[in-house]
């Protein structure tokens, strides 16, 4: 299957050397290599992490997709599988891990909680979706997604990788590339997103005048 996808980018090979020569594009080869070795960060947050582990075990066996190498260190990981509820207390650690991951890096929001806060969205210690802070590539609904649904999401991610082109990817683009760095949020009276400091101050100040008025 992979061979068919890899070869013959609209180029006809003469019949007599068909079995000897294979033609592909650099993009296809590059993406094929990357999509077949997406190493996830070993990173479990909540209930979804158990299904993530289950997806790694014998019955579902994510190793078939080259995703079995769970790396406990972000330096060696390609993909952050946000598997569970992101709490405000945990968020700075997650952002730090993300910043430590080398490019190319992908973020998959597994399950309702990671996508939008899920059933715990209204809670005071829950971040309403990791996409508020990190660029999410694939959202997998479900609470928790079954291992098969997770694998379906991973295939979706592979499709996304397939569409990328080596000449356009952000990590080789030296001029525009800012490393996808996300500033660390702080834990104050509530979670402080430092990118929005002025906004927070303005609204907080307005709150005072409103209440005194």
């Amino acid at each position: 299957m992979d061979n068919e996808k890899l070869s013959l980018p609209n180029y006809n090979i003469p019949q007599d050397i068909e079995n000897v020569v294979a033609i592909t594009t650099l993009d296809r080869l590059y993406n094929w290599g990357r999509r077949s070795s997406v190493w996830p960060l070993m990173f479990g947050l909540a209930c979804c992490a158990i299904e993530m582990i289950a997806a790694q075990t014998a019955r579902y066996d994510m190793a078939r997709f080259g995703m079995e190498v769970m790396r406990p260190t972000p330096r060696q990981a390609d993909m952050m599988l946000v598997s569970g509820t992101v709490t405000k207390k945990m968020l700075p650690s997650i952002i730090r891990l993300y910043n430590q991951m080398p490019e190319p890096k992908y973020v998959v929001a597994m399950g309702a909680c990671a996508s939008s806060g899920g059933p715990f969205k209204e809670g005071y210690n829950v971040v309403a979706g990791i996409d508020k802070f990190l660029p999410v590539d694939v959202y997998i609904p479900g609470c928790p997604p079954t291992p098969q649904a997770l694998i379906a999401g991973m295939i979706k991610l592979q499709e996304k990788i397939d569409k990328e082109s080596i000449s356009k990817v952000r990590w080789y683009n030296k001029e525009k590339f800012d490393g996808n760095y996300v500033p660390m949020p702080l834990l104050g009276p509530d979670l402080i997103d430092v990118r929005r400091n002025t906004e927070i101050r303005d609204i907080a100040a307005k709150k005072t005048t409103q209440e005194s008025a």
Binding site: Y124, A128, L186, D190, I192, N197, E199, A204, A205, T208
Partner: peptide, 26 residues
């Protein structure tokens, strides 16, 4: 979205007159 109703949008709640720039991390 519940986000649209919240002044800070993101499930945040700050005391009145809070200034994040003067804040020091615990």
């Amino acid at each position: 979205y519940a986000e649209e109703k919240n002044p800070y949008r993101d499930n945040l709640n700050f005391p009145e007159g809070f200034d994040p720039e003067k804040f020091t991390v615990d």
